[in-house]
Amino acid sequence: MRRKLTSIVNGAFPLGFIVLLLVTWEYWVRWKAVQEWILPGPALIARTLADNLPLILKHAQTTLMECLAGFALAIILSFVLAFAMDEVLLLRRALYPLLIASQTVPIISVAPLFIIWFGYGVMPKIIVVILVCFFPIALSLLGGLAAVDREYLELFRSMKATRLDIFRMVKLPLALPSFFSGLKIAASYSVMGAVIGEWLGAKEGLGMYMTIAQRSFQVDRVFAAILIVTALSAALFALVALIERLVIPWNRLTEWRDL
């Protein structure tokens, strides 16, 4: 009861801060009579968002599809690669440094290539999302698999478990908490990946909507799109966090014990 009250009070602080910020912003814009095409006030942005909601949501749908497709493919790829690298030492030795090094290549610099190769459809966007999501997922999964206590493996070998048994019953479940922390990071990056892909040229999507609004100095529309992009990222993160709770409820039990 008391804890609940405390958490409500704690939640009120950032909320209050945001309200304060919005009010200040609105008054500043009005007082200084800032041009709409430079910085619109929050009230105007809200009105624009409401007026254009159907159109924005239609673009958001495209972006969301690209995100989910890329995200799902990144998960599948990560599993295949992590399994192979965990089972075959040679593969791990060969690929691990490359995996780390690949992260020094800025995605935004290679994304135009995908446009050249795959055109203006959803394909290049999905590839960018895969590239953005793959690294945190694969690395967290690999880390989780590698961190499994050797003694578990010895115990299961002493019970005549096969390699597949050990992977399925021991390694995978014990790696899941780490995997999910990578998944949450990837979920919040995935929308950004899709939007970057769309910036470079697209037929549909929030990134494309933003580019068009920006070119015609409709900054209120840019802000409206930013709001939706943020909401999408947060929703995906929340979805993964929810799935995590459902898939590994036991992970929170260990936290209780440590309290």
């Binding site: 206590d149 578990y152 070998r157 002493s158 005549k160 019953m169 014990l174 899941l176 992970n251």
Partner: peptide, 18 residues
């Protein structure tokens, strides 16, 4: 030859997910 003895250690090594 493994599988002929029952082995128990200081760590309980119970799987947290089961």
């Amino acid at each position: 030859n493994s599988g002929l003895t029952s082995y128990m250690r200081q760590k309980d090594l119970l799987l947290p997910n089961l």
